[in-house]
């Protein structure tokens, strides 16, 4: 089991192989459908982004409400392929890693290879379990989107599987 800290180091990312299991620690940002759409439009219009995308890891997640006394509610990954149409643009803007569930398009795999980025899988449908690895959670941007807002999460030993590595190899057979 590899232990990886954010920010990701270039050499470290290149050593990761599809199928590797890792434990990730550091800051990640959630973004799903509507946040992706907004980020993409902002980039296309060359306007000011609410966060610096350089080197960050995006988690495709819309958490449940936070119960009293908890850091965060259930917070597992959502289906990554819905973000495929925005991903090459975000990778081009500096995003280094993504966390989600399921397969990605050919275009996304090519963009991951081009930008030497990485796509991780989180245990899908295990949002209660995964909430235990989150040490801090705040709404960071697009608050009006509710659960689809960008949340800043501090994770500790977040268990992940490398889905697509920086060489474009995928853990899925097809």
């Amino acid at each position: 089991m590899k232990i990886i800290k954010i920010p990701l180091r270039k050499e470290e990312v290149q050593e990761l192989k599809a199928g590797d299991e890792i434990l990730l620690s550091g800051i990640i940002y959630t973004a799903r459908d509507q946040a992706h759409k907004r980020l993409a439009i902002t980039i296309q219009q060359r306007k000011h982004l609410p966060l610096d995308l350089k080197g960050i890891i995006i988690y495709y997640c819309g958490p449940a409400k936070t119960p009293k006394g908890k850091i965060i509610g259930s917070c597992g990954p959502t289906t990554s392929s819905r973000m495929d149409k925005f991903t090459p643009l975000l990778l081009n803007s500096g995003v280094k890693g993504m966390i989600g569930k399921g397969a990605r398009s050919k275009e996304v795999i090519a963009a991951i290879k081009k930008h030497k980025a990485v796509y991780f899988l989180a245990y899908s449908g295990c949002g209660a379990l995964l909430s235990k690895y989150i040490k801090k959670a705040t709404v960071f941007a697009y608050k009006d989107l509710g659960p689809e807002a960008i949340h800043k999460l501090e994770v500790k030993d977040f268990p992940l599987i490398v889905g697509i590595d920086s060489h474009g190899r995928s853990v899925y057979k097809n």
């Binding site: 958490p63 259930s74 209660a128």
Partner: peptide, 10 residues
């Protein structure tokens, strides 16, 4: 046990 949603997508 902890009264958390099984999945965040409720």
């Amino acid at each position: 046990k902890e009264k958390l949603a099984i999945c965040q997508d409720t």
